[in-house]
Simulated scan of single mutants.
Amino acid sequence: MKKMFCFFVFCCFWHLVVFGVEDEVKSVTEGESVTLQTHVTELQTRDLITWTFGYPETKIAEINREDAIFSTYDDVLDGRFRDRLELDNQTGSLTITDTRTTDSGLYTVNIKDTKSTTTYRFNLTVYARLPVPVISRNSSQCSSSSSSSSQQNCSLLCSVVNVGHVTLSWYKGNSLLSSISVSDLSISLSLPLEVEYQEKNSYSCVINNPITNQTTHLDISKLCHLSKKISVVSFSSYFQTGYIFFSFFFF
Rank of each mutant, 00 (worst) to 15 (best):
T52I: 04
N110H: 14
C154R: 01
T212D: 15
I211P: 04
P192Q: 04
N153L: 14
Q141D: 10
L36A: 03
N123P: 02
Q151R: 14
H217L: 11
N208W: 02
P131R: 00
G105H: 09
Q141S: 14
I63F: 02
T95Y: 06
T125V: 13
H15N: 13
G105E: 07
R46A: 08
Y243Q: 14
V166S: 01
G79N: 08
S71V: 13
R100E: 11
F245Y: 13
F249W: 05
T41E: 14
D113W: 09
F53A: 01
T119F: 03
V134H: 09
D23H: 10
T108I: 15
S247M: 10
F70K: 05
S33Q: 11
T125Q: 08
N123M: 13
V25T: 08
T45W: 11
S155F: 05
I180L: 10
V161Q: 15
L130E: 07
I96E: 01
R129E: 12
N162Q: 09
T101W: 01
T117K: 12
D88C: 13
V134D: 08
S104N: 05
S33T: 12
V166H: 01
V76I: 13
G164V: 00
S139L: 07
E86S: 14
E66N: 11
V166A: 02
V132I: 14
W51Y: 06
T29C: 08
E196Q: 10
K222T: 13
T45Y: 15
E194F: 03
K200E: 13
I211C: 06
Y55I: 05
I220W: 04
N162D: 15
L157V: 09
S148Y: 08
Y107P: 02
I220H: 05
S148I: 08
N123Q: 15
D103F: 15
